[in-house]
Amino acid sequence: MSEPPSILDILGPIMIGPSSSHTAGASRIGFIARQLLNDKPSRAEITLYNSFAKTHKGHGTDRALVGGILGFGPDDTRIRNSFELAKKEGLEWEFKFSSDFNRFHSNTARIKLTGEQGGSVDLTGASLGGGRIRIQEIEGFKVDFNAQTHTLVIIAEDIPGSIKNISGAIAERGTNIANMYVSRNEQLANMVLEMDQSVDKETLKKIESFPWVKFVRRVEPMIEGTSRYEK
């Protein structure tokens, strides 16, 4: 499902040092968690796995993750002071360290975010080097996407017609679904949809209004090369 990489991402990203995997990639994972939460975060529980757990100190991995959660892109110099800024914003955070080489890529972070409205999200992402990342679990579902394109994450009851209804709602507005990936557990299905354009608010509302839909979130890509996020 991986998209061809942009040459501007190969020659970049433009980022705050010192490590594209441990700093830039970490802030991207944090930022995607923030987008999935879709609320002002009040609490973050972050577990660092494998190499991340061992070598995060001094790479600013911790500051980058917290910065990402605050909404800072990898090239945002505020990352340097993200702990101080998080305190001001009322974000509490806690780091845990673990190791599981069988299950996770060597640079992996799991982020459990709670928002001010009480919502929460649980995601696991891997930093692959060069600032590239992949999100690998959301709410316990296996996923595999990089948020380089407009992405929708939907969790819904696994009933006949659910996929058809969702893709119908998106196609109705003329948005083209480039890729769709589904994973399932006993009752629920997780869908990750990658699209050429952003899905508008009405479409999101419509999908949310299906009674069997539990969770709909939009993740927007970064503008090429600059690593800034589209607002």
Binding site: I10, L11, I14, I16, G17, P18, S19, S20, A24, T77
Partner: peptide, 18 residues
């Protein structure tokens, strides 16, 4: 040195090799 001090760099292709 700029990179190690959390300065802004272009990671071409990574920050360590920037």
């Amino acid at each position: 040195e700029v990179n190690a001090c959390m300065g802004k760099i272009a990671a071409a292709p990574t920050a360590g090799s920037a």
